[in-house]
Amino acid sequence: MAKPRKKQPSRTVQVSCGKCHALLYKYRKGGKGALVKCFVERIVDDHTHEACTCPSCGQVFARETMIRGAPAYKMIGGKVMMK
């Protein structure tokens, strides 16, 4: 399996909770599609206290997994918004 690219994308997006709109991450996203997964190494600012849980409302928005040999968070559909 191919690993994610070593060179990080330049575009930064804000990932927020779909329920209470609290800021969760600032993430370096590649491509122009929907946010399906977040590689842990690409997260610039992490505002969560517990992994995959919103600090404001306590909603679980993702699952921890390994994708192509790298740790990542697999997003649950409709639980996060991206700007």
Rank of each mutant, 00 (worst) to 15 (best):
C57M: 08
A51I: 05
Q8E: 10
H47A: 12
Y27R: 01
T65Q: 10
R11W: 00
G78L: 02
M66G: 05
D45G: 14
T12V: 08
Y27W: 04
T48H: 03
T12E: 13
L35G: 10
R63T: 14
I76V: 04
A72S: 11
R42K: 05
E64R: 07
Y25M: 07
V15S: 00
M1V: 07
A51S: 11
G18Q: 15
C20M: 11
G30L: 05
P71I: 09
T12F: 00
P55H: 04
E50L: 10
V15L: 01
V36Y: 01
F61G: 13
P4K: 11
K32D: 14
A22Q: 15
H47C: 07
D45F: 08
V44L: 12
K74H: 06
M75Y: 13
M81H: 04
M75E: 11
G33S: 06
T12L: 13
T48R: 01
G18P: 04
E41V: 08
C57G: 09
Y25F: 15
F61R: 02
R28L: 11
K37A: 01
P9T: 07
R28M: 14
K32G: 10
I76L: 09
V60Y: 04
R42G: 03
V44K: 07
G31I: 04
T65L: 06
T65V: 01
R28Q: 05
G69L: 07
G78E: 09
G30Q: 02
M66R: 12
R11M: 06
V44A: 13
L24Q: 09
A72Q: 11
I67W: 02
R28F: 05
L24M: 08
Y73Q: 11
P55K: 10
D46F: 06
C52D: 03
M66V: 06
Q14W: 06
S16L: 00
K79Y: 11
P4Q: 05
C20G: 08
A70H: 04
C57K: 08
G69H: 02
G78Y: 04
Y27Q: 11
D45I: 13
K83A: 04
E41D: 13
K26N: 15
L35N: 00
V13N: 10
A62D: 08
G58W: 13
M1H: 05
G30F: 00
P71M: 13
K79N: 14
A34I: 03
V15Q: 00
V80R: 04
V44M: 10
E50H: 14
A22I: 14
D45Y: 09
P4G: 03
C52P: 00
T53D: 06
K37G: 10
A72M: 10
Q14R: 07
H49C: 07
V15N: 03
V40F: 15
K32F: 01
G69N: 09
R68E: 15
K83T: 06
Q59H: 12
G31Q: 00
I76D: 05
E50C: 10
I76P: 03
K3E: 12
A72T: 10
K6G: 08
H49R: 08
V60K: 12
K19N: 13
K3H: 04
I76F: 06
G33E: 04
K6S: 11
G31P: 07
